[in-house]
């Protein structure tokens, strides 16, 4: 097959299923009289009108900022505590059952509690996001640090690699495959909690706006918000994958290189 043909096949493969879904959606909305399922064209129009406006500044960016702040907080706390717990068998024995308990609590139920403790401002939303994201990061970091190679650890001891240098060159790099896995899980949890935290006592944000549209029977606008969230999650996952590929190039290379 020549280059052009291959490119066409590739585009068809990638775009085929989405196009099919839009067609089914179009056919369904044309055939049904359901008020709550507007045609894709109508939603696309609403999307442009709604989001290419000051809403980007008023709702999308604040949402993203809170997501990033909560996520960053969770990364710092999760990796920090995870390294400490992973390196100390004693701490691990004491902490692990409690950690499993906290992880088992569905994060959204913490919203009412955190509202009482932190009020209804941005701080509450950031805390909700952080409190949900922190567990997969923490537990994966503990796992990764615990599984560090003993021979490599002995090598560090023999060659005087200790303290911060050991943390940087051995602990964090050695645990990075598991840490990255935790970070990936936390990202999707973070997006969910970003939306949920904004559905409570909020005056801005994507979650708030979508609920507002729903209550005002602006159905196409509501759909466009859902679409935006999906796209947002998709783009963030894409960015994350690029970062992961950079950080773990040695890891994937090692797997393939062992031929």
């Amino acid at each position: 097959m020549n280059g052009t043909g291959r490119a066409v096949t590739r585009v068809l493969t990638v775009a085929g299923v989405p196009a099919l879904l839009v067609i089914v959606w179009q056919l369904y909305s044309a055939a049904s009289q359901n008020f709550y399922v507007p045609a894709p064209g109508r939603v696309a129009q609403a999307f442009a009108e709604t989001w290419f406006s000051e809403r980007i500044l008023d709702d999308v960016l604040p949402s993203l900022a809170r997501l990033l702040a909560g996520y960053a907080l969770a990364v710092a706390a999760g990796v920090g505590a995870g390294v400490a717990i992973g390196l100390s068998p004693r701490l691990r024995a004491a902490a692990e059952p409690v950690l499993e308990f906290f992880r088992a609590i569905p994060p959204p139920v913490l919203v009412p509690l955190i509202m009482l403790l932190a009020g209804i401002g941005d701080g509450m939303k950031v805390l909700v996001i952080a409190s949900g994201c922190v567990w997969p990061i923490l537990l994966n970091t503990v796992e990764g640090v615990r599984a560090l190679d003993e021979v490599l650890s002995d090598t560090c001891r023999m060659y005087g690699v200790r303290g911060l240098s050991r943390l940087r060159h051995l602990v964090l790099r050695g645990a990075s495959p598991q840490i990255m896995a935790g970070l990936r899980q936390a990202l999707s949890i973070g997006i969910i909690l970003m939306v949920i935290s904004e559905m409570f006592a909020s005056s801005s944000g994507l979650g708030f706006t979508i609920v507002l549209f729903q209550r005002g029977f602006q159905i196409a606008e509501m759909w466009s918000g859902i679409l935006l969230l999906g796209l947002l999650g998709y783009v963030l996952a894409l960015l994350f994958r690029r970062l992961e590929r950079r950080v773990l190039s040695w890891h994937s290379g090692r797997g393939v290189g062992r031929a």
Partner: peptide
Amino acid sequence: VVFQEYGRSLFPWMTVRQNVELPLKE
């Protein structure tokens, strides 16, 4: 020390040069 398990005593995330250099940096 040179360990038996060469595959586990070198840092896979570092190049050959970085592996040799790290102890000297320390």
